Computed example of a mutant assay.
Amino acid sequence: MSERLVDAYDLVIFDLDGVIYLIDRPIAGAVEAVGELHRAGVRLAYATNNASRRSAEVADLLAGLGVPADAGEVVTSAGASAAVLAQRLPLGSKVLVVGAEALRAEVRDAGMEPVSRAEDRPVAVVQGYGPQVGWADLAEAAVAIRGGAQWVATNTDRTLPSPRGPLPGNGSLVAALRTALGREPDLVVGKPEPGLFATAARRVGAVRPLVVGDRLDTDIEGAVRAGMDSLLVLTGVSGPADLVAAPPERRPTFVAPDLAGLFDAAGAATVPPGEVDGWRLETEQREGDAHLAGQGSAIDALRLLCGLAWSGGDVTKVTPDTPAARDALHALGLA
């Protein structure tokens, strides 16, 4: 029996939004997949850029969905940002918090005083996602930053996956301040910075972790920066067209439709593949056109097309030579 993909690793680090759940609804098959890993004794961790919940709250949410987890397995950008500020600032420093109550609580527990007005003269502004963040919050942050406060962003995700499709994420709100101030944040803590993944691995002494995420620009790039292998699942933000066009720093080691890919043979998820049963990609040297022929799964066709694109080929010139190839290209949105 071929070794399963997960068997080669001593820790699996999951992103949450778009991988395990969407806002608060479990993604099909995710609870079952994580449950199987637990029963097999695989060490797990969760690393999220979403700063609207504390580690214990995330663990409670997961448990409520049927995923056993404890706070020690969860690393959030809110907690990491508060820890960074505590290293940079004197105890008791005032920090203007733009975000959810979870971020305020993390700042408070790290020994600083969370405030909400520029007139309180904060020495730093920390900005994270919060569903109630509005213009007044951004205005106070702008005034404080212009007054000399350090500006720390928990993350810069442009969107947040949801059952209704992508919604504005913290990066969209950071962009509003960036436009108003004409400058970048002094520090971005969350993914694609490698800190969350490094912290998760360090907590359990893992030497060969696997990162599982749905976003090329945060999860996968963060894994590349951390020197870790990664699995992209197509249940969240990044899709087939994004993967084909991915630059080297955002290319995953593996790709799968969902978390069931963890239990496939590693060779069935490697991207680009060494070979793919059922599909043939024939390139015309003179024109650079290519033909997809044969039949098989759409995900295997995607892996093959990534090999073409990542070696300099033009996927837009690929034409189907069989009905199955045509259906695969349509399913992938690459027709």
Rank of each mutant, 00 (worst) to 15 (best):
M1L: 06
S2N: 06
S2W: 05
S2C: 05
S2I: 05
E3H: 15
E3I: 11
R4E: 15
L5E: 10
I13Q: 13
D15K: 12
V19K: 13
L22V: 04
R25K: 15
I27W: 14
I27K: 08
G29N: 07
A30T: 15
V31D: 06
V31R: 04
V31M: 06
E36F: 02
H38P: 08
H38F: 11
V42S: 03
L44Q: 02
L44S: 03
Y46G: 02
Y46D: 00
Y46M: 02
N50L: 11
S55R: 02
A56M: 01
A63K: 00
V67R: 05
P68C: 01
A71R: 06
A78F: 04
A83H: 12
V84W: 15
L85F: 07
L89I: 09
L91F: 13
L91I: 03
G92Q: 06
G92R: 07
A100D: 15
A100M: 11
A102W: 04
E106Q: 12
D109I: 00
P114G: 09
P114E: 09
S116C: 11
S116H: 14
R117A: 13
A118M: 10
A118D: 07
D120M: 10
A124I: 01
A124D: 06
Q132K: 13
E140D: 09
R146Q: 01
R146C: 02
G147A: 11
G148D: 07
A149F: 14
Q150L: 14
Q150W: 14
A153N: 01
T154V: 12
N155C: 06
R158N: 00
T159E: 06
G165F: 13
G169F: 10
N170G: 14
L173P: 02
A176D: 04
L177P: 02
R178T: 15
A180L: 15
G182Q: 08
E193M: 11
G195A: 04
L196E: 07
F197Y: 12
F197R: 05
T199V: 14
A201M: 13
R203V: 03
V204L: 05
V207I: 11
R208K: 15
G213W: 14
D219F: 01
I220A: 03
I220Q: 01
R225I: 11
A226K: 10
A226G: 08
G227C: 01
G227W: 00
M228C: 10
M228K: 07
L231K: 03
T235A: 07
S238E: 00
P240Q: 03
D242C: 11
L243I: 10
A246G: 09
P247G: 13
P248V: 13
R251C: 05
T253D: 04
V255N: 01
A256I: 04
A256H: 00
L259G: 10
A260N: 00
G261W: 02
G261E: 03
A266V: 08
A268Y: 12
T270A: 15
V271Q: 04
V276A: 11
W279I: 12
R280Q: 15
L281I: 04
T283P: 02
Q285L: 08
R286D: 09
D289L: 12
S311E: 01
G313V: 07
D314E: 06
V315I: 13
T316H: 08
T319N: 01
P320N: 06
A325N: 10
L332A: 01
G333W: 03
